[in-house]
Amino acid sequence: MSDAVVDSPAPAEQLYGCVVTYSRGEKVIHASRGNYIATLKKAIDDSFTMCTDLTAVDFLIYASTNRQLPSDISGERFEIVLNLISLERRERLRLRVQIAEGEATLPTAFDLFPGTEAMEREVFDMFGIEFEGHPDPSRILMPEDWEGHPLRKDFSVGRIPVQFKGAPS
């Protein structure tokens, strides 16, 4: 095989204007913060009417060169991961969005998938990523006066003593 063949790969597969990759055979599209909502709308029109899961990953201590991302997407600290289902075509689709540490916000998907309300609250609670326009931006699992976001990689296990509301100090 000549070097020229290796250097000029086939143009990346596109779906809803986003690059498509495959992770262990699962279809993943990579949206940006800018076209996140527009991509979701296109996915809904394409029968992906159910959002089963919305979660986040903190890539703080993950070597960014090893992240399996398409070449034109630069890895940021946070990543939002959505799993959509098409009930008609019986397919799954995963959507990944990179969120920079300095501007950890994303428009809410609540208006498109009302079922993401609790999931977005959980991501906010655990990672501190705020969802613009979310109707109820409060913590969901941790107490409302908790400080910090436990699933961030710089929040170590057992570092902070257990806090209870109204406990005598």
């Binding site: 931006p137 409060s138 409302e144 006066d145 400080e147 806090q163 509301k165 100090s169």
Partner: peptide, 30 residues
Amino acid sequence: MTSDLIAGTPAATGEGPQEMRSRSELTAKE
């Protein structure tokens, strides 16, 4: 633990309260 936490001061992250609010505190849209 600081006394701020006990008093229930909102944390620096600025989240809203978890509990259901009474009607007088809500807008019609909410």
